[in-house]
Amino acid sequence: MTTVAAKPAAKPATMAQALGRALRDAMADDPTVHVMGEDVGTLGGVFRITDGLAKEFGEDRCTDTPLAEAGILGTAVGMAMYGLRPVVEMQFDAFAYPAFEQLISHVARMRNRTRGAMPLPITVRVPYGGGIGGVEHHSDSSEAYYMATPGLTVVTPATVADAYGLLRRSIASDDPVVFLEPKRLYWAKDSWNPEAPTDVDPIGTAVVRRPGTSATLITYGPSVPVCLEAAEAARSEGWDLEVVDLRSLVPFDDATVAASVRRTGRAVVVHESGGFGGPGGEIAARVTERCFHHLEAPVLRVAGFDIPYPPPMLERHHLPGVDRVLDAVARLQWDQ
């Protein structure tokens, strides 16, 4: 007779906890993983994602750096050149901008510049997006800048389990990953077992979060729960909406997205980022190129307005919500 050790059960966990656990496990498994950034040590990060890491692994493995994003990422490049696997925290979306030169001129293209001799296994964690009542410069959706830079992998989780799995895969990746953390989902809870986290699909794999037949909502990160809610609400209108969570913007999972749209014949792309020059344009073009003969209506976009991110008291008018998603679905030429 064999006794099976009782597995700790899944219980409610937040995305913040799962991200912290992913960092911890990555550091425990691989001594070359180093966490660095502003306030990540003693404080555990302003969102407490790195809480406890400095204590467990020492300040050399989880380092409070001087306050300089270009310096943080620039030194991470050097550390990676010498064989370490840095995980950099940018405190907020808009505070990553000083690091853009390092990111674009070096991080993104080092593999290419060196003909593959020196890839940079750096993960840049960026809390992004709005909806938290943050004042100016704390709510940007900066994903389009990263997507537009060849050489960068761009990942963004929407669930607790994905947050863990995708962060582990990002850190393990030999390519630089910009890991965008939807900060308004940090405290969203899900049933999850930190002692037995399930693996997720490789980076670059989208997932159908909710199967449906009428139309596909293509979305990611902070807009995934909005789309799921919209899909629920749409039932009373007689629409059965499919929701695809992209999980990674680069590489882009054309296969999963196109297969869904071919099935449903209609698609709406939903994101917080501005529509003009935003991710939705690229996504809509790709869907149209691949599914033209299956489409019953043009691919529509529901996006943030093309304005600087508004002050907290006005942000609810800016952020795409359930109503705006349903309005777009209603415009998918159902009568024809």
């Binding site: 502003e38 306030d39 003693t42 404080l43 001087p66 306050l67």
Partner: peptide, 11 residues
Amino acid sequence: FAISVPLAKQT
């Protein structure tokens, strides 16, 4: 301080 980071870690 810079949030939690003391001057000694800054300069």
